[in-house]
Structure formats: structure tokens, C-alpha cells
Design a protein around this nucleic acid. Structure first.
Length: 297
DNA sequence: TCTTGCCTAAGAGGGCGACC
DNA sequence: GGTCGCCCTCTTAGGCAAGA
């Protein structure tokens, strides 16, 4: 028997989950069925692809090679199926999106109209921090990636699609709330709450501090935007957040945006994809739907 | 000791081609 | 068209080993 797409798909899932059992759950199979498919693939290729050390599964060097090819082959087949479906006017397919957590305030509002316009396209949305997104990008696990800043080292094609202004937020009862024309010196001694290391928002905040020669004390680092906003709201300090992610809190008065020279910092949301990747029709349709760069305000 | 997860064996079910 | 046999894919059952 030749290598089958089924075997490659199952092997890819095992490699991604690091477990036969979890792969089986994901594929709605039993663990022995998954094991058997991978074993057949190994027998056909006459080389072990997975080695077990203790209870942990690890890919062999051959396994890594096969995994890379499996991803390419399966992506190509999926793309082919969607293109053929497109030719038939069926508009069926799947769009896998991975977004940084702060983009979850922006993307769902765009997915609604897209989904209504393309009812045959299934959408898989993964939300993670920047580090997780870059890991998925490296593994080519999704069609498109939404993030604030695209690292220069990333082998990516990208384009900005929307403005993403950053503002300094404070609790409504904060002494600086409502004051006009504040400068960097006014916040130089204010305690700040930072996002986790690697966060684009944090990088922009630190750049502002450096450029203005200030070093506000950092009271805590939090990994989730909600936690940051809650900490600010309870008066633990100031923070810099995407205006879009704090829209509701600003509207309801739970938080206030401070009027500080240099803010809002104008950044953009970017959509990126691996350089050279052949985008599926679904991904191309979503790209088309995102506002082009020249319309960004 | 118990739990979890890998692995094997045996067998069921369904697809498919060959044959009548 | 119906039957048979082969093969693939899957499930269940159970053994075994590692880790908590």
C-alpha cells in the first residue's frame, strides 16, 4: 500500500498533540486505530518516525522530515479541494485564523460579515499570546495570522489592515484622570502594570518610556489583557492598552484614557502569512475583505 | 498502588473487485 | 444482480510500563 493522505493526516495530528490518545480524541478515533495508522506509515517508509522516551513521544529526525512534507502535501490537497469547490461555485472551505489575544476585540466583528457572505466556509479561530502565535506561524498551522507588529526576522508576507491606537488608561478616580495636556514627566513616577515579555503593547510602552527618558516603577506583569484592565480599574497602577480592547470600559467609565503628549501611539493591526504560502480561496477572500492599507486612518 | 497511556491481538464492518 | 473473498479501517479487550 502506498502512503495515504489519511496516514499523513493522522501522523500530523500525533506530532502536533504529542500523544496517540489526544490525537485519537481529536480525530474521533480510538488510540489503537491511530497507532496502527502511524505504524503502517513507518513500515511503508521503513523508518521509525516517533520514538517513545518514558511516556513522552518524540519525533525522530526522519519524523521531522516526514512531518514537514505531510504539512505541505495536506495543505496542498486542502487548497486543491477548495479551489475545485470554488470553480464549482460552492464556496466551501475552511479558514484557520490565529490571532493575538488583544485582536479578539477586533477580529470577531469582521468575521461576522465574512461568515454571512461565505456561509460555506468553516472558520477555526485560535487566540493566543504573541509567543504562541509565532510558534504556530513557524509550524504553518493556520492560514492567516493577526498581530500588532510583525517581527522583522519573520519569514512572512504581511500587510496592515486597521489602526490600533494605544492609550494610557487609569482608574476613573485616579489623580490624573480628566487632566489635560499631561507630559511624560507626569507619569514618570506612576506605578505601571505591564503585559508579559514579548507583548507588542509592552514593547511600544517601553519604547515610549525610553524615548522620553522616563522609567516608571512596574508594579506587576500580567499575561492577559482582561487582568491588566481589572488591575488598572482597581487602582493598582496605569497601563497602556489598545483602545479597541478597552472600548467598553472607556464607554462605561470603568476606565479613563489619559491625555498624555505622545498618545495615542498609532500602531496598526497586521495580517500575515508565511512567505511563499499558497493561500486558500477562503484565506484570499478574507484578505480581500480586510480594509486595504490606504484606508487606514 | 493507582492512573494514564502505549501497544498488541482478535474480530467486526464496509468497500470493492472477481466470478457466476 | 447476487455472492464471495480480500483488504482496509476501525473497535474492544487486555497486558504492560512509567509516573504520581
Amino acid at each position: 500500500m502506498p502512503v495515504t493522505l489519511r496516514q499523513l493526516d493522522i501522523f500530523r495530528t500525533v506530532a502536533r498533540t504529542g500523544s496517540y490518545t489526544r490525537a485519537a480524541e481529536e480525530l474521533h478515533l480510538t488510540q489503537p486505530a491511530v497507532f496502527a495508522q502511524v505504524r503502517q506509515l513507518e513500515e511503508h517508509l521503513q523508518t521509525p518516525l516517533i520514538e517513545r522516551i518514558g511516556k513522552m513521544l518524540h519525533l525522530t529526525v526522519a519524523g521531522e522530515t516526514v512531518l514537514a512534507s505531510a504539512r505541505t502535501i495536506l495543505d496542498e490537497v486542502a487548497s486543491l479541494e477548495m479551489r475545485l469547490a470554488d470553480l464549482k461555485g460552492l464556496k466551501r472551505g475552511r479558514l484557520a485564523l490565529c490571532i493575538v489575544s488583544t485582536a479578539k476585540y477586533d477580529i470577531p466583528g469582521r468575521l461576522g460579515p465574512f461568515s454571512r457572505a461565505n456561509p460555506g466556509i468553516d472558520i477555526a479561530l485560535t487566540v493566543g499570546n504573541r509567543e504562541e502565535l509565532l510558534a504556530r506561524f513557524a509550524a504553518n498551522e493556520d492560514d492567516l495570522y493577526i498581530l500588532g507588529t510583525v517581527p522583522e526576522t519573520l519569514q512572512a508576507e504581511w500587510r496592515p489592515y486597521a489602526a490600533n491606537p494605544l492609550v494610557v488608561v487609569a482608574a476613573p478616580e485616579h489623580r490624573l484622570a480628566g487632566r489635560k495636556g499631561l507630559g511624560p514627566e507626569d507619569i514618570a513616577s506612576e506605578p505601571f502594570i505591564l503585559r508579559e515579555s514579548g507583548s507588542g503593547t509592552r514593547a511600544a510602552m517601553e519604547r515610549y518610556f525610553d524615548e522620553n527618558g522616563i522609567a516608571p516603577p512596574v508594579t506587576m506583569e500580567l499575561g492577559a489583557n482582561e487582568a491588566v484592565k481589572e488591575a488598572v480599574r482597581t487602582g493598582l497602577g496605569l497601563s497602556v492598552v489598545s483602545r479597541g480592547s478597552a472600548e467598553l470600559e472607556l464607554e462605561t467609565g470603568r476606565l479613563v484614557a489619559l491625555d498624555i503628549k505622545g498618545f495615542p501611539i498609532l500602531r496598526h493591526w497586521h495580517v500575515a502569512w508565511p512567505r511563499g504560502k499558497r493561500l486558500s480561496p477562503a484565506a484570499e477572500a478574507f484578505l480581500d475583505m480586510l480594509a486595504p492599507e490606504q484606508e487606514i486612518v
